[in-house]
Amino acid sequence: MSNFLDNFYGTLFHPDRTFEGLKNDPPLFQGFLLVIFVSMLASFINFQPPGGIFDFAFFSAGLFFSVITGISSWLILAFFLEIIACIFKQQGHTKVFLTLSAFSLIPWLFLAPTQLFKVWDLPGTLLGIFLGFAIWVWVIILSIKAIMKAYDASFGRVLIILLTPLIGSSITTLWMIYFFSTLIRILSN
């Protein structure tokens, strides 16, 4: 537990030094628990009191689904990066990346206090959006650091790895929206 608390503090305030330590001795189980906890967070933030047994069943199912989705996304991202790493002959760091990427999710926990801002109407909501965005940026930076550390990659190479599929999928999505909206217009006339 004490080791986890040190890693928790280090990830938030000294990420480079902590990630170096985590790389040498990756505590994968701690990372696994972190992913489960962060995945459950969204369900609790969007919590609606159950009106009956069915609502409670829905909430439990949603919670379970969130955990499964969270773990799957975590594993899929690691798998995806391993494939890319294979191309660059840098494979074999999956355990390190899984651990580092799980710890880079720690700032998501601060979404819980952020959601309380919504009770202060518009100014609170705007502040909440701003803080939510800041947390998102924080997680992205830590994730990039995690990839750089796990695969000994430069910042430029990480950007290429992350942005290439993003740009490709964005262009494909825009093309599909344009295609289907035109099709709908043609059919609705």
Binding site: F8, Y9, L12, P113, Q115
Partner: peptide
């Protein structure tokens, strides 16, 4: 570091309960 970590985790859990 451990006290700060525990405080932060506690605050997060508390804010979930308040929410």
């Amino acid at each position: 570091a451990r006290i700060i970590s525990l405080t932060l985790i506690g605050l997060c859990v508390l804010s979930i309960l308040v929410g």
